[in-house]
Simulated scan of single mutants.
Amino acid sequence: MATDIREIDTGTGFDRFARGWHCLGLAEDFRDGRPHAVDAFGTRLVVFADAGGELRVLDGYCRHMGADLGAGTLRDGRVACPFHGWQWDGGTGRCAVVPYAKRTPKLARTRTWHNAEINGQLLVWHDHEQDPPPPDLLPPAIDGFAEGRWSEWAWRSELITGSHCREIVDNNVDMAHFFYIHHAYPTYFKNVLDGQTATQLMHSKAREDIFGDSPYYHPDSLLRSEATYFGPAYMINWLHNDLGDGTTIEVVLTNAHYPVTQDSFVLQWGVAVAALPGAGPGQTRALARAFSAKFSEGFLEDVEVWRHKTRIDNPLLTEEDGPVYQQRRWYEQFYLDKSEVTADMTARYESEIDVRHARREWDAEIQRNLLERR
């Protein structure tokens, strides 16, 4: 019997959801005069705009008889249950009106969820200890977004089943998958873990065997990427696209997710392009949609892998695979009580991968692929 076989440890999984800010979608999509049901964190939420236009998030099931408030209506800025008409205030969580009753029960109160709008998106705070969010943990505003210096978001979302959302966070340190999934190869790759942030710094070039026939391909093009997770579920990725002809297009990508159950999550990504000299808003929006379509191809290839892979808690790594275990240790802090978070989970850690060997092998593979087509 062989004793040197590497067995896969699938682990025990998480028994709670991550503490932190989670993006539910574009804020304006919830301001259409009706309540919206959102399945998240193993339960159902209801999102709606109150009479003043402020977005509110409540538990989604009515405390009277358990009906779905997302199937209700809005009355005077409150969400009215479709079953018996009880009206729930989004700011206090209290039932303000029971239309057919002389008195509203004193105990008629539901849970309100802390939320915030940033970068045109609605974020909701989850904490299994039920503490409010510290002010310094809200993800930052994208410079110039509120002032209109970027296009509107080209937005996509995808429900992923059969996988935990840790899978997408692992990608932050996964240098090699960019060649096989995203059809580029890194020329520089570094990770920095620090406190509640996890950053990926990368320079990459498009694969000539994949994109060489495109009129937009240039051998001297370079993508300079700075991507940071602000907490466990919300990433901002600043992308500087040097086209090889002296032109640089500035793109920002938000890569966000929220858990539905312990083995499913909603992945969302949005692309915005900085205003270009001489280009009107329509041209900039079209460019954002084009970038989004290209990024979406890669995301959906990731999704296809996740849907068929197994959970693995003991991945077998090479030195070019990046600090997977260190980042997972960083990620673990969001699933523990705050009193249980240890210093090694939040301490600053830097790792730069030597990509020279990988580049030589990938260059050779690209040249073989090109020769086979001639």
Rank of each mutant, 00 (worst) to 15 (best):
E147H: 05
H177P: 10
G162V: 06
L267H: 08
Y349H: 14
V355R: 03
M235H: 08
D89V: 02
R103A: 12
Y188G: 06
L69N: 06
A2T: 09
L371M: 11
H164I: 08
R224W: 09
D302E: 06
L122F: 05
M175Q: 14
A27G: 02
L193K: 06
N241L: 08
E152Q: 14
Y331K: 08
R356Q: 05
V303N: 12
F14N: 11
F145G: 02
W362M: 06
W269N: 10
L74G: 09
L45V: 07
S296R: 05
G212I: 01
Q262D: 03
L26Y: 05
E319N: 07
L137S: 14
A256W: 06
D242R: 01
D50Y: 08
V124C: 13
Y61R: 12
V169F: 11
T342F: 03
D220R: 09
V192S: 03
R356H: 08
R75L: 03
R78I: 00
I353C: 09
P35H: 00
A286R: 15
P135Y: 14
T261Q: 02
L370H: 03
P82S: 09
K102M: 03
D242G: 00
G66E: 12
R360D: 12
E340G: 10
T73Q: 11
E319M: 09
Y325Q: 06
F17D: 10
S204K: 07
G20V: 12
L287Q: 15
L300M: 15
D127P: 02
A364P: 02
R6E: 01
F41K: 06
A80I: 11
G60F: 00
L107V: 08
V38L: 05
P232T: 04
R329S: 12
D76F: 02
K294E: 15
L239H: 03
D263T: 15
R156G: 03
W125L: 12
C165W: 12
Y325M: 11
R78S: 15
D363E: 14
D213A: 15
G148E: 04
Y325E: 11
W306T: 01
T346P: 06
H64E: 10
C95S: 04
E320F: 10
